[in-house]
Structures are given as C-alpha cells and as structure tokens.
C-alpha cells in the first residue's frame, strides 16, 4: 500500500451563447439630470458580476468614469428583454447590447455638448474622467454632468440610447448536424498533480495549473474568481459529487450536505492561472464567455492524473475511493492473469 502520485492534463474549447443563437438581450441607457448614466436591463445578478462588467462596458463606450454608471437590472417592468442568464452569454450578449445603447446615448451627449460649445460634434472627445472637450483643446471642456442637465433643461433632449444584440438564429440539420451553433469559442488547458492513497482509495489534488484564452478580459479580477471557483467545482465533480451514488439505481440519494459531499477549503490545492488574450470579432471589446467552462478542463485532467498515478483506465466520475479501489482490484486481477 502506498501513496502514488500522477499528473494529468486536459484541453477544452467552450462555445459562447445559447446553442443556435437567436437569443437576444436588450439594454437601455439614459443620463440623469445629475450626470449619472443608468443602464437598464433584465438579466440576473447571480454573483458572477454582471453589474460590474456591464458598468465597465458602458463607462468605456460612453467615455465617462466607472463611478458614473449605475446598473439597474432584474425587473421585467423596467428592463427590456433578456433571453436568460446562462449559457456563458451575459457578457457577450448584454455587453454588445450595452455598447449599442451607450453609443447612441454618447452621440446624443456629444450633440448637446457641441451646441453648448458651438463646435461640431465630430470634433469632440471624452476624457474618461467625466469631461467632454474639443479634440486637442483641453481648455474647451464641459463636465458630462453639466451636459446631461443642459440636455434636459435647456435643449429638451433626452440623452439616452437603445441597444439590442441578436445573434442570428441557426437551424441544426437533423441529418448532418450542419449549423452555426455559437458566436465564438473560448479555450482552456489544465494540468493537475494528484496523490492517490492505494489503501483508502482517497485522492488528493496537489496542484492545478491552467491557461485560459477567453478573448478580451473585461475584468481580470472577476475572471480569476470564475477560474478558481470553477477549479474547485471541478474537484467536486471529479472526486465527490453525485445525487445517485449507485447510478443508475436511485437508492442512497443524499438529502443534505452531510451526504452530498462537496469539497471544503482543505481540499483546495494551490491554483495557478494565466490568461491569453485574442479578442473575438463578435464579442464586446473582444470578450468571449468564461462562466461555464471553468470546471471542464480540471475534471478530465484530474481523472487522467489518477489513471496516470495508478496505471488504470477509470472512465467515470466521481472517482470516489470505492471507484479507485475497484479499479485497483481489477488491475491486480488483470496483472495476475
């Protein structure tokens, strides 16, 4: 009996957006008289950070500070349609919709500023700090808040914009599968090292290293959060989690967190990750979806590492101690024969 180490790797691709497209999301942007820009939509904040990411995209497009953007989401009376918060689609779909809405609002804002400064709107730029000025002439400048107020009270203009992103709907040929099912593909590759206790069958993940290619990162801090959280979820799927421990039997189904085992802080190895940036033409500022793919490379990498450590061929998950011990028994039988 021994503790054996092994390494494994896996490479994956992941499609962005609802399968076969045709999944629109809309956004509205308007300036308040005090100079805030409100982005309104009906996507759902699940902790993934869509309010943060969409505020960044709106601020970038409008040319105003991040702090000036308010994201108001999750109400079907006020927010226009969203085809659901899933399928790694929100940054891509809602992000593109926000860009469209923010562009329209920005143009209105520059038109009002042009009237105020008596110049052409084409000659105006934003400084990202809340000011609009004439290209090359920083002194000829107006605060965006002042322009927003003047738009409403002096010029009778609504500084606002509408945006929708509708990826074209494709059909999947039932015979050949021919279709255009996604907007873009993100990529990841993971290497893990495991230690397997051949007496107990317990597996410990010692290290997990990944590289992700997700187009342009809108927010590296939140991307890292997804990758680390996904690595942990991958460990859960690979080693512990099941609602049917003796699948396909339905017996021994767990009813609580004592029997549905998910890994804890002590089961997490060191995680290293790197990001490659190859902007996608279809994404907002080049972004691809990252939310769902993050457990997909860790799971097979862990199973490959176990197979590597034990020289066995496990092809099922979760690889519980029982699965490990049965694989070792089978190998001993085969080696003996």
């Amino acid at each position: 009996m021994a503790k054996l180490r092994g390494t494994g790797m896996a490479a994956v691709n992941y499609p962005t957006g609802m399968h076969l497209g045709g999944d629109p999301t809309m956004a509205l942007v308007h300036a308040t008289s005090s100079g805030s820009f409100v982005v309104t939509l009906s996507s759902v904040e699940l902790g993934q950070g869509l309010k943060t990411v969409l505020a960044q995209i709106a601020a970038e497009t409008l040319g105003v500070p991040l702090e000036a953007v308010v994201v108001d989401t999750g109400d079907t009376d006020t927010g226009p349609h969203c085809s659901g918060t899933g399928a790694s689609r929100t940054t891509h779909r809602a992000g593109n919709a926000v860009i469209a809405a923010a562009k329209e609002a920005r143009q209105e804002m520059l038109d009002v500023a042009a009237e105020m400064l008596e110049v052409s709107a084409d000659d105006l730029v934003t400084d990202g700090k809340g000011n609009i000025h004439v290209k090359g002439v920083v002194e000829k400048s107006l605060p965006a808040a002042e322009v927003a107020a003047a738009g409403q009270f002096v010029y009778g203009k609504s500084i606002s914009g509408r945006g929708i992103f509708l990826p074209p709907a494709s059909k999947q040929d039932p015979e050949t599968g021919e279709s255009a099912p996604y907007s873009t593909q993100a990529h990841a590759c993971t290497v893990v090292e495991v230690e397997v206790d051949t007496e107990t069958g317990a597996v410990r993940v010692l290290s997990l290293k990944s590289v992700y290619e997700i187009g342009r990162q809108v927010n590296p801090e939140l991307v890292k959060g997804q990758i680390v959280g996904g690595a942990w979820m991958g460990i859960g799927h690979a080693l512990y989690e099941t609602t049917a421990p003796y699948y396909p039997a339905i017996d021994h189904a767990p009813y609580d967190f004592l029997n549905y085992v998910i890994p804890g802080a002590a089961e997490m190895p060191e995680v290293q990750c790197e990001i490659l940036e190859y902007p996608s033409e279809t994404g907002p500022y080049g972004a691809k979806g990252v939310g769902e793919m993050v457990a997909n490379a860790p799971i097979p990498a862990i199973v490959n590492a176990i197979n590597n450590a034990l020289d066995v061929c496990i092809g099922e998950i979760p690889v519980t101690p029982e699965v490990v011990l049965r694989a070792l028994e089978e190998k001993a039988r085969a080696d003996g024969a």
Binding site: G47, G225, V228, G229, G230, A231, W232, M233, F257, I262, G264, A265, A266, M268, V271
Partner: peptide, 20 residues
Amino acid sequence: EILEALSGNLCRCTGYLPIV
C-alpha cells in the same frame, strides 16, 4: 487552523482560496 475553522462553512462560488 484557518482551514479547520472554515470547515463548517460552505461556499459554492469562490473555491475558498480567496477566503483563506
């Protein structure tokens, strides 16, 4: 000791490393 202290608290999002 930190891992021991956190062992009764589940988090499904972060993967615990940022919490530690």
